[in-house]
Nucleic acid binder design. Structure first.
Ligand code: SF4
Ligand code: SF4
Lengths: 162, 162
DNA sequence: ATAACATGGATAGGCGATGTCCACAAATTA
DNA sequence: TAATTTGTGGACATCGCCTATCCATGTTAT
């Protein structure tokens, strides 16, 4: 049970887009080359990011993608939710409704959701809240601290060329 | 991205085993009949629970399963981990090692795990810790508060018969 | 011995994740 | 206007995991 590879694709792609010059876009082709990953599949990932309002797109020649809002307003959870969807980790099929007591109305009480679901979803919410406190901007600042000047320049050069 | 149905099977099965009389076991056949679910598949679930040390088994006639330790020492997380495994939600394939800067040693620094992985796994740990605070015993006590006397007796009767 | 039980392996269907291909729309450029 | 570049969406293929079944085997009570 793991997040799909699309989450990793999204994080790494968005990371570089933070420093994209104003009014400039980057295409799927360049981004997939940067990471050495499938071009057509990455386009599916960006389609999800666009529908989630994280990036915006411009079709046509010199078109491409850019962040749809400030990197400080894009949280880790926003990115994960865009790719993985909104369904909770534990969503049961209510097997209790099939158990042998179900036919005895004096015994069976149809009260779902129960504590199992509630507890697990509360725990999941703790994780979500933590992930909402970290933004793409924060990630960029933290990571750039350890980048050498050469590396920063190499990334900036690459962003100018694409 | 959701927990498998096996988690639901495990929770509902273990719930009834809390009140199993001392030195008594319950078989897969009876448990699957109780819930109206697949007998052979439930046996795979119990196999995982046994390997995780949550239940113990006795083969042979009148054999079956019982809790391997006190219900107060079985946490929600123990149950989920037994079924879903121990791998973290986010375990990347290190796509950074394929990117175009990787061949320039002056730019690329091979420093994983990075902040992405760290932050997500820290958030996941908050969830795990929450799930570790709730035990199977606690679940049983909370749920039994709302059970009518008829229902408690029906369950006790059923446990005596199996 | 026989029956009842757990155990593990082999197998199969379903379904979602990953990835490819193509037709189409939109925008720029010539 | 025509050609080229780019994103969009659907259809399709492949793969692995989840769910489920079946069977062969070992163990224990009767
Ligand atoms: S009791 Fe809880 S876990 Fe069980 S079927 Fe109802 S909501 Fe789902
Ligand atoms: S930088 Fe982080 S997410 Fe990216 S490959 Fe390395 S560990 Fe994985």
């Amino acid at each position: 049970m793991q997040y799909s590879i699309g989450v990793e694709y999204a994080f790494h792609s968005l990371f570089y887009m933070v420093d994209l010059p104003e009014h400039k876009t980057i295409g799927i082709k360049d981004m997939s080359k940067l990471h050495g990953i499938s071009e057509t599949y990455l386009s599916k990932i960006f389609s999800k990011l666009r529908k989630a309002g994280i990036v915006s797109s411009i079709p046509g020649v010199n078109g491409g993608y850019q962040l749809a809002k400030g990197a400080e307003n894009i949280s880790f959870w926003d990115i994960i939710e865009a790719i993985e969807g909104t369904s909770p980790l534990f969503s049961c099929i209510e097997i209790r409704k099939k158990n042998i007591f179900v036919n005895d109305p004096s015994i069976f009480t149809d009260k779902c959701p129960c504590l199992i679901k509630t507890v697990i979803q509360e725990a999941e919410e703790l994780m979500r809240n933590k992930l909402k406190t970290k933004s793409l901007r924060w990630l960029r600042e933290q990571v750039y601290r350890d980048f050498s000047l050469e590396k920063r320049n190499a990334i900036a050069d690459w962003l100018r060329k694409v």
